[in-house]
Nucleic acid binder design. Structure first.
Length: 412
RNA sequence: GCCGCCAUCGUCUAGUGGUCUAGGACAUCACCUUCUCAAGGUGGAGAUCGCGGGUUCGACUCCCGCUGGCGGUACCA
């Protein structure tokens, strides 16, 4: 039975790296019909951050990768104390300055086969130092608490960041001291920023929640993250959660620290926007703009009209954030010349009898020819931006009356 | 410093001794389309597979060294 866990400490908001680790654990669990466990490691009382625990849960929820079981280490103190005593009694640990320390035996080799890259890693005991297992405040350190819990919770595979590699010999010693069989280990390379340094605020948003607030879609985020250090082979890139679960295997995890490339995420998000049907897109937009009455009012307008507009907008937005400027015009600041063009446009549109995109387009072309102007001028006049949804279509949708009225106000 | 991990286009990667004059995707450039901007289509440029030694009839693929990057070296996780 596969049982995996993520063990975040509530000392801050999880960043993309931690979140990807959670995703990989989730996919591995589901691929093997196993369990995905969340264990809050709140043993460092000094560094606990208010709201961090809630943020962890919120992120898993946002991504749709909820844990099957949840544990909190501060509620399991008895276990850690009990197990520390066993080590003390066996004389494998000792007390010093109010803390309990694990003694590293001499002339030993600690080695394991890491499932990332399927290679053997080993450390000599002379390179490992005695370490604290119970701090003087009575709380266990990560080393003791995680080993005890992983064993008690029947964790089969530990999939975690590779900053843990050099701690693994300590964990191996603990397993041996308790006469427990250690689980399998898979250490994931960290995700780096553009500068090849650890991902930081400079690289943009910090947590997936921030990306969500920037108008990135859950499915795109998931798809992009899974490809950071994992590849099922072949050229397939766009994958649904079901496909990821079906294809996910530890042997396909890369050994190289990937760099987070926002441009590719943005492209992929655009792909997902275009793949969505209008009903789903509308729902996503409604959620994203829930605080913006102008946009939600627009979205709640005539469904048929909205449908047409969504079709036009889909190929022009990479993130949901770009939707507003696409559909809600702003008042343009026109030069004298542009005002003249606006007047001509008004005149030409006014005489159209059969108001549709074809007649509107030919009117537009006449105006452009008369003024020897580029099409972008008309977009500036009507939308306030030099580009936008195709005018013939959107003016047809808006209706002659509304368009004329608006142009009159501008041209005066 | 010591210990460990890693090393293919700018980026994500395919590649497990010969099929590689190294494939795909993002980004980039050109063209097509065109009322603007996109989307889409076609094509181009872009990697002497970090460097140096081996092993082999033959190395991107195996071994060693070097260099570089990253991580660890806490009564933090």
């Amino acid at each position: 039975m596969v049982r995996v866990r993520i063990a975040p400490s509530p000392t801050g908001i999880p960043h993309i790296g931690n979140t990807r680790t959670a995703l990989f654990n989730y996919l591995f669990a589901k691929h093997n019909k196993g369990k995905f466990i969340l264990r809050i490691e709140d043993t460092d009382r000094k560094r606990i951050v208010q709201g961090a625990q809630e943020a962890i849960v919120e992120i898993l929820d946002f991504l749709g990768i909820p844990p099957d079981e949840t544990y909190i280490q501060s509620e399991r103190m008895d276990e850690y104390k009990k197990h520390a005593k066993i080590l003390l009694d066996k004389k494998l640990a000792y007390e010093k300055e109010g803390a309990v320390w694990m003694k590293i035996p001499e002339n030993q080799i600690f080695s394991w086969t890491d499932l990332v890259g399927n290679k053997s890693i080993s450390f000599k005991s002379q390179d490992v130092e005695d370490f604290v297992i119970i701090k003087s405040d009575g709380f266990p350190t990560y080393h003791l608490a995680s080993v005890v819990d992983d064993h008690l919770m029947n964790i089969s595979h530990i999939i975690r960041g590779d900053e843990w590699i050099s701690s693994t010999p300590k964990h191996l010693l603990l397993y041996k001291s308790f006469s427990w069989t250690p689980p399998f280990f898979a250490h994931l390379p960290v995700i780096l920023g553009k500068d090849k340094k650890k991902l930081s605020k400079r690289d943009g948003a910090e947590s997936v929640l921030d990306y969500g607030n920037e108008g990135y879609l859950r499915d795109a985020l998931l798809n992009f993250m899974v490809l950071l250090g994992w590849n099922p082979g072949g050229d397939k890139e766009i994958m649904s959660m079901e496909e990821m679960i079906r294809l996910f295997e530890l042997k396909d995890i890369g050994t190289v620290a990937p760099i987070f490339d926002l441009q590719k995420l943005t492209w992929m998000n655009g792909e997902y926007v275009r793949m969505m049907d209008n009903k789903k897109l509308k729902a996503s937009l409604l959620e994203f703009y829930s605080q913006d009455k102008d946009v939600t009012d627009f979205l709640k307008g005539d469904p048929k009209t909205l449908d047409l507009i969504l079709d036009l907008a889909k190929t022009r937005m990479k993130t949901l954030k770009e939707f507003k400027d696409l559909v809600l015009p702003k008042i343009p600041e026109l030069s004298e010349e542009e005002r003249g063009i606006a007047k001509t446009l008004l005149k030409k549109l006014l005489v159209i009898k059969n108001w549709n995109k074809t007649t509107i387009l030919s009117a537009m072309k006449e105006v452009l020819a008369m003024h020897k102007a580029k099409g972008s001028v008309l977009y500036k006049i009507i939308t306030g931006f030099e580009k936008g949804l195709p005018l013939p279509e959107s003016l047809e949708i808006a209706g002659k009356e509304k368009v004329i009225e608006m142009l009159k106000r501008l041209a005066i």
